[in-house]
Design a protein around this nucleic acid. Structure first.
Length: 829
DNA sequence: TGATCCCGCCAACGT
DNA sequence: ACGTTGGCGGGATCA
């Protein structure tokens, strides 16, 4: 039966959070107080084995950590108790300490992230429940969600198998596919639209589409998505049927995977999950219940760091939402490879380091059997990382609940079974500073092996990254995104002033839900994207809607802007400071206030821009692997800070600066959320440096590489090829003149910039070109195109989207791309 | 307050 | 009949 609330039998160190210092409530069974791990009778043996297992050691570390924090909590509680006299019972286990999320962390901590595939790790629900000291009911909640991700599978009653993160990549791909098939993208838009109309339109006429928005509802009851090779196990004992939570969880995840700003509000999710087939009777209580369930799911997903809570600010006000922070999921991967290729998905806390093999293999994620020669520098890098890890994990450990066979496997296949300690980040939040330091130190060591400047520029980062992320981003297997945005960002952002050219590729499939920003306040007189030329079928609706929204948003925009500007000072760039001043709005007080209140939570309001990819066409590494200079880093950091959402979209693990040593493309996902402010205050670099870089750029990437890259990440279909260097192509840009350069000095740059090509690709692979006229950057601000692009909305720079190829525009108007000027703000916390 | 979401009743199942 | 699962929603907490 479910244990009594207070039946405090601490079997696991992990349960130490449970206050044992409360005398009144329930006399805690003083029974087993031995701190040792009573895991199993063979624990001694395991202990010996684990001495050699890095995995175990790291596990131990993690546990220590959580121990530490929990102890703090404990003492704190005890103190409280003493101080307040008899505050007996209840105040103790604060509600938060019993949260599903925390529980999930504990749960996850029990198992290796990447368990041996040879031996199964089993989960006995009873045991777990007992050891974690919770009712079994709660474990079900967790397990059900994990099951939906195929991280566990049911073997028999009360018995599950733990798979860890092995399957996640595949699962997500499957889910994404399912989501696409289910037309979730459209559904989301539908809901949003409906909602909008509901608010702003009082005229009836809404019900025709309300009832049957999506023509094909044949499926309508999309059931549990299973993985090939996974299902048999489940099938053995699983009497499918309900699985509501599981299915709900999957659907929820799908929503993230198919929506372009990967942000899903609870409300929308609930509506879709409720009514996708059934008539939309806005049953209040049903809705409420759904929301409750979604919270449950979200808590687990959050523990997995697949999502993160944010808030979207829309016309309606702040709405709870969640943002996908999990790995980017590629779509165009053939099923065959889906099944055979086992891509690894790194667990949240990036403490695991992929093996060399993984690293190199994943460098070119999921295109299958292609064999790539590892670049020497990469090998070196990986090696040093591995060394680092060994050092880090050299601490002795105590036994862990893993089957002995697993352990042996681990030692037999070092580097293969990387596991990532899941730290109870919740508990660590208060110690984010420390964590950050640790993280920085570690990342630095990694950076150093790359010979780049050791200075790691501290940057504002979301609180969530307080989690100990002991490994630099570059250690993440490609195709997967490290949990911490900051980790990836540097890589995503191309050298700020290298004079590199970029091609912008928009992925139409993502363009559906793209939102853009409509500047309506003084400081941004120029629209960032002039899409008026696009005559979309839907345009009427969206125009109307977006316009109003834009107006409504004005106030928010201001504050947003200020906020970002305020943060800017972190950037060590005199020029940027100048810039900042220039752009600093009058409402400084306001800003500061706002900033202060949000500085912890990084409540950055951001604007989404059309998704796509910024692909740097590097001048082949300038001969040296010269890392970012401090200044550069600063610039990068600042940028990354304001564009953190792009991190999620990381398709290619360009992440590590190290990779610069390898001639490669920097592909920056343009899942950009820009805050107008950041744009205005973007760092400025010296002209000279720009020019020098420009002139020095001799080599162009071979077109084959480019094509490969594009194909690889699914931007273009296999057959299609694009010119190696768009910059070399002269494409007349008509709209350019409007965006007047402020100085002739900049002409060169301007020309270069304006020649960048925006390539829109169709699902079918029919690609059309659109030239993007990237306006000339401010003469004094010789940034790369990338930055120009970033700055566009704020500064004098503008990007005119549909400037040339009318054909392409038409294509867009077919419905593949519309850019509602809805503004979406996302803030953490 | 509203947003969160813990708790545990109890029904549907499985054995 | 009894144990497992897990839907569900009241109402406690949190912000």
């Amino acid at each position: 039966k479910s244990p009594l609330k207070q039946a405090a039998t601490s079997h696991s160190v992990l349960t130490e959070i449970q206050p044992h210092c409360q005398p009144l409530t329930t006399p805690p069974k003083p029974k087993e107080t031995l701190p040792a791990d009573p895991w199993t009778p063979t624990s001694n043996l395991k202990m010996l084995i684990s001495a050699a297992s890095p995995e175990i050691r790291s596990r131990e570390q993690r546990r220590e950590l959580s121990n530490c924090t929990s102890k703090v909590l404990q003492t704190k509680q005890c103190l409280q108790e003493q101080l307040s006299g008899d505050e007996y019972e209840r105040s103790q286990p604060s509600r938060k300490e019993k949260s599903l999320g925390l529980l999930c962390h504990k749960f996850l901590a029990r198992y290796p992230d990447y368990p041996s595939t040879a031996e199964s790790t089993f989960i006995c629900l009873d045991e777990v429940a007992e050891e974690l000291n919770v009712e079994r009911r709660r474990i079900y909640d967790i397990v059900n969600v994990l099951e939906s991700l195929h991280m566990v599978s049911r073997l028999a009653k009360n018995k599950y198998a733990w798979h860890g993160w092995h399957n996640l990549s595949k699962t997500l791909q499957a889910l994404k596919k399912a989501g696409e098939e289910n037309k979730y993208t459209q559904q989301i838009e539908m809901i949003k639209k409906r909602e909008y109309e509901h608010v702003f339109d009082l005229d009836g006429e809404r019900n025709e589409e309300m009832t049957r928005p999506f023509g094909s509802n044949e499926h309508s009851e999309m059931s549990f998505v299973e993985l090939p090779g996974m299902e048999f196990r489940a099938a053995s004992v699983n009497s499918r049927k309900d699985k509501s939570l599981r299915v709900m969880s999957q659907k929820f995840v799908m929503l993230f995977l198919v929506s372009t700003p990967q942000v899903v509000s609870l409300e929308v999710a609930a509506k879709i999950l409720i009514g996708e087939d059934q008539l939309e009777d806005l049953d209040k209580s049903k809705f409420k219940t759904k929301i409750r369930r979604l919270y449950d799911i979200a808590n687990v997903l959050s523990s997995l760091e697949l999502i993160k809570k944010v808030h979207v600010t829309e016309e309606r006000g702040r709405k709870p939402a969640f943002k996908w922070t999990g790995p980017e999921v590629l779509t165009n991967i053939p099923d065959t490879e889906l099944e055979t290729t086992s891509t690894t998905c790194p667990p949240p806390v990036s403490e695991s380091i992929p093996s060399k093999e993984q690293c190199s293999k994943n460098l070119f994620p999921s295109r299958g059997k292609q064999n790539f020669t590892r670049h020497p520098s990469l090998i070196k890098l990986v090696k040093s990382i591995e060394n680092d890890r060994r050092t880090i994990q050299s601490a002795p450990t105590s036994p862990v609940k893993i089957s002995a066979s697993t352990d042996q496997n681990l030692s037999a296949l070092p580097g293969e079974m990387e596991q990532v300690p899941a730290i109870a980040k919740h508990q660590l939040k208060g110690q984010s500073k420390k964590a950050k330091e640790t993280k920085m130190k570690l990342s630095r060591s990694a950076l150093e092996c790359n010979s780049s400047s050791p200075e790691v520029v501290p940057k504002p980062e979301p609180p969530r990254s307080a989690a100990l992320s002991q490994q630099p981003a570059l250690t993440q297997p490609p195709g997967v995104r490290p949990p911490s945005h900051s980790a990836v960002a540097p890589a995503i952002l191309p050298h700020p002033h290298s004079g590199v050219s970029y091609a912008i590729y928009l992925c139409p499939s993502q363009a559906h839900t793209v939102t853009t920003y409509s500047p309506s306040f003084v400081l941004q007189p120029l629209p960032c994207a002039n899409v008026t030329g696009i005559k979309s079928i839907n345009s009427k609706v969206f125009n109307k809607m977006t316009t109003e929204e834009g107006d409504n948003q004005t106030a928010t925009d201001d504050s947003t802007k200020s906020l970002t500007a305020k943060e800017r000072p972190t950037v060590k760039s005199e020029t940027s400071q100048r810039c900042l001043k220039r752009s600093q709005p009058l409402q400084e007080n306001n800003l500061i206030k706002r900033f202060r209140s949000d500085e912890e939570s990084l409540d950055t309001s951001l604007t989404f821009f059309p998704s796509g990819y910024l692909i740097a066409l590097p001048q082949c590494s300038h001969g040296s692997k010269a890392g970012f200079s401090n200044k550069e880093k600063a610039g990068i950091c600042s940028l990354q800070h304001t564009t953190y959402s792009s991190a999620i979209a990381g398709v290619i693990p360009v992440a590590a600066p190290e990779l610069k040593a390898v001639p490669t493309f920097h592909i920056t996902p343009l899942n950009i959320m820009l805050s107008p402010t950041s744009i205005a205050a973007a760092p400025v670099l010296s002209n000279s440096s720009l020019h020098s870089h420009n002139t020095s750029s001799a080599q162009n990437p071979s077109s084959s590489v480019l094509n490969f890259t594009l194909q690889h990440i699914g931007l273009i279909p296999a057959g299609v090829r694009v010119p190696a260097n768009p910059v070399l192509q002269h494409i007349p840009v008509s709209s350019q003149p409007e965006n007047v350069s402020h100085s002739s000095e900049n002409k060169n740059l301007q020309e270069k910039v304006s020649k960048n090509v925006l390539q829109l690709l169709d699902h079918d692979g029919l690609s059309e070109k659109l030239t993007v006229s990237l306006s000339l950057p401010d003469p004094k601000e010789p940034q790369t195109v990338t930055e120009n692009f970033f700055q566009t909305p704020g500064g004098p720079n503008t990007v005119s989207l549909p400037s040339a190829n009318s054909d392409g525009i038409d294509r867009i108007s077919q419905g593949t791309l519309y850019i509602p000027q809805r503004k979406l703000e996302v803030s953490e916390n």
